[in-house]
Amino acid sequence: MRNPLILIVDDEPKSRQGLKRRLDAWNEQLADIHTAGTAFEALEFMQEHEVDLLITDIRMPEMTGLELIEKTKKLNQEPVFIVISAYSEFEYAQRALKMGVVNYLLKPVKKEAFIEAVSSALAAREKKDRYAMVEKAMEDPALEQIESLPEPLQEAAQFIEEHLGEKFSLKDVAAHVHLNPSYFSVLFKEQMGITFSEFLTRKRLQQAKRILLTSDLPVGEIAERTGYQTAKYFIQIFKEYEGKTPSKYRKEARED
């Protein structure tokens, strides 16, 4: 996993370098710390680098810090933002909050408050990245068309979702939605494009990936929670679909 990248933007050299020295002295997260003297310099830097935390002064010539934040979002970058201002103006603070700024600090910035703000912002960025990683792992087009299905199949999908950790068959689900098993099987594949068995496997693996990425539970317990009778069979199925074991999947995801 790469070190977080912090960019400090301030048109006042003394202020800019002072903030950088504070972070260099602290730097518990081994962050890469860079500075820019203008918003345009910052935007040019972000064309080439992915910034995790942008710390910007509000009042700068040619472009304000809030305008810089707006342009940053258009670069397809999603850093977290800290705004620093010499002015205690409610309007600025209100606008900053609406733009997703995680902290608004007034100059002169106290060392403890600054370090605490940076630490919290990096934690927020890490949480945001982890959430995005889990969301990406959950993507499966074959599982995302439930709302357009006939009502019996919507009920079937809900039943499956609520009982993933239990043992049940196609007959059990068909009985739950009051359909003949053979008809239910044909209808399911016709509407979903995959068989009931394939759908169930994908749902269980989707849930398994969520648990792998958000917990340290052992593989055997994850297998049990997602409806597999043995860890060996779970690992076999997981590897068949993902090309790697659950443990390797978790390890590589966290390293990335």
Rank of each mutant, 00 (worst) to 15 (best):
I194E: 06
I194T: 11
I194D: 06
T195Y: 09
T195N: 12
T195G: 15
F196A: 01
F196D: 02
F196I: 02
S197Y: 13
S197W: 09
E198K: 09
F199W: 13
F199M: 11
F199K: 04
F199T: 01
F199N: 08
L200S: 07
L200T: 11
T201P: 03
T201R: 14
T201Y: 07
T201M: 14
T201H: 09
T201E: 15
T201G: 10
R202P: 02
R202W: 13
R202C: 09
R202N: 13
R202L: 11
K203S: 13
K203F: 11
K203P: 05
K203H: 12
R204G: 01
R204Q: 10
R204M: 06
R204W: 05
L205G: 00
L205P: 00
L205H: 00
Q206H: 04
Q206C: 03
Q206D: 03
Q206Y: 03
Q206N: 11
Q206G: 07
Q207N: 06
Q207F: 00
Q207R: 10
Q207C: 02
Q207E: 12
Q207L: 06
A208L: 04
A208F: 03
K209T: 09
K209D: 07
R210Y: 13
R210W: 08
R210E: 14
I211G: 00
I211N: 01
I211A: 01
L212V: 02
L212E: 03
L212F: 07
L213V: 07
L213H: 02
L213S: 04
L213C: 06
T214G: 00
S215D: 07
S215H: 08
D216L: 07
D216A: 08
D216K: 06
L217M: 13
L217S: 09
L217E: 14
L217H: 07
P218Y: 09
V219M: 10
V219D: 12
V219C: 07
V219N: 06
V219H: 04
V219Q: 04
G220Q: 08
G220W: 02
G220M: 00
G220A: 10
E221T: 15
E221L: 13
E221N: 10
I222N: 05
I222D: 02
I222Y: 03
A223R: 02
A223E: 03
E224P: 00
E224A: 12
R225W: 12
R225H: 14
R225F: 09
T226I: 09
T226W: 04
T226A: 03
T226V: 13
T226F: 05
G227M: 03
Y228E: 06
Y228T: 05
Y228P: 07
Y228H: 09
Q229E: 12
Q229R: 12
Q229P: 00
T230P: 11
T230M: 06
T230K: 11
A231N: 12
A231Q: 15
K232G: 14
K232H: 14
K232T: 14
Y233D: 15
Y233C: 10
Y233V: 13
Y233S: 15
F234Y: 14
F234L: 13
I235E: 15
I235H: 01
I235T: 14
Q236S: 14
Q236H: 14
Q236W: 14
Q236E: 15
Q236M: 08
Q236P: 00
Q236C: 10
I237S: 02
I237N: 06
I237H: 02
I237F: 04
I237M: 10
K239H: 14
K239S: 15
K239M: 13
K239T: 15
K239Q: 15
K239F: 10
K239I: 07
